[in-house]
Design a protein around this nucleic acid. Structure first.
Lengths: 239, 239
DNA sequence: CGCGAGCTTGATGCCGATCAATGCATGTGG
DNA sequence: CCACATGCATTGATCGGCATCAAGCTCGCG
């Protein structure tokens, strides 16, 4: 599994993302080396880690996009989330010290590999670093909580709108366009994530395209009317 | 808000629950005093903390039962979870340093109040303590993730069965009966948590009562057939 | 060109929401 | 102690949204 590692010394001097770009001047090249943080390439379709594997490291997405999936006892599997640049993979496994999800690259990607034990050592050494790490975990908890709310209280159209707003919002925060998205995932995968069937997702994209909220061409999506999209996402739908 | 505090010196010598009962011999009476951990009584219906309030402390439920709710912009609110003895309240707020949910006691309860900054200090001091705390946060992440799966892929009957199995399982882990439960929450609240309407919840209780899986009398529920309940919870229902 | 995976679109059905009424506990005042 | 009110739960009838079933369609690729 832990195959070719590529360490790009340029990027090591200017790191981005939640785990590193914390305004911690202390976390420089020297710290990185000490923590044995390296970069690893993951090809599209390749699995980064599987359900049940012991926790060895956390991963920060440096480039590309991942999906995390859970396989249920009966064999079906559901998508637990999509991770883009700056997101952390592996937080789910800290409770049990084993991965509870599988992470698969949706396109050619790169991750920073952060050995977990070194990370805890680092936490003990720096109060700022510790606090920052706790905030990352806390944000993960809030995010899952929000997803629960979405799945528990929104109708199909609102779910899709919220999904698009979340995705574009995250992309924008990482410096991408807030309106033009190239979806890396299939309708199937979006449906699985949102608790909807592929046909429903497709129909909703068509509907939003027709009424001018979006412009959809396969996986190229452009948000034409942010206000309308926001309105749909917050539409009441039952208690 | 932070009204009368009761410190029970007997209980302080023998603490239970996730945050304290970690097999950490170091966390004795002296540490508790140093961390300024105190016990506080919360009457049924009383609010422990509200959405938007700054994070001051985490709380471990020492006795009783809580619900956490999120109020959406449009005024509706949804239940994010139920916390029983041993559960931690406030983890949701670590990401933003403000509470994202409101916590309300469902009956007369008691909590341990753990000032957050002291907790981080403690983490820095003890690697074991730090690791234990990380596991607690990790478990919270996994739990929310599981709830997402439930809401995204299960039909109504499976949701209720899973809810009951989760609740009784947690009760059992804390030394209560695994089959007899007195629900502290209304049908309304269960429905809100599971993304179902009150009528649906009621009908399902009736159905499970009639077919002998449960015995239901108001909020007194007894699991008669654990195997059947488990089967219902794992029934396939769509992708 | 033809094949296939992924996507779209239509027709139908079912689960759970909605609307509406009744039942059943607890509490309060006469 | 009963009459009545109030809040929660149950049960029934109907409706609607999304799943399901079933064809086509589009686009990339050998």
């Amino acid at each position: 599994m832990l195959t070719p590692l590529t360490v790009d010394s340029f990027s090591m001097t200017r790191l981005s993302g939640a785990l590193f770009d914390l305004g911690l001047p202390a976390l420089d090249r020297e710290n990185l080396a000490e923590m044995a943080i390296v970069r690893r390439a993951v090809k599209g379709g390749e699995t980064l880690f599987r359900q049940g594997e012991p926790l060895v490291a956390l991963y920060e997405v440096h480039a590309g996009c991942f999906k995390t999936t859970v396989t249920l006892e009966d064999g079906r599997d559901q998508i637990a989330g999509f991770q883009i640049v700056g997101d952390i993979l592996g937080l789910d496994s800290i409770g049990s010290e084993r991965h509870t999800v599988e992470a698969v690259a949706l396109e050619d990607s790169q991750v920073w590999v952060v050995p977990f034990s070194n990370l805890e050592t680092m936490c003990a050494r720096s109060a700022d670093f510790q606090h920052a790490f706790h905030k990352i975990m806390g944000r993960e908890i809030s995010a899952s909580r929000e997803m629960m709310i979405l799945l528990g209280s929104m109708r199909a159209e609102a779910r899709l709108a919220a999904f698009l707003l979340d995705l574009t919002g995250r992309m924008q925060a990482r410096g991408f366009s807030a309106s033009a998205v190239n979806l890396r995932m299939s309708r199937q995968e979006i449906g699985s994530y949102l608790g909807l069937k592929i046909e429903t997702v497709s129909r909703l994209f068509s509907k939003l395209h027709q009424n001018g909220t979006l412009s959809v061409r396969q996986r190229d999506v452009r948000v034409r009317d942010h206000v309308a999209l926001r309105k749909i996402a917050s539409a009441v739908a039952s208690e």
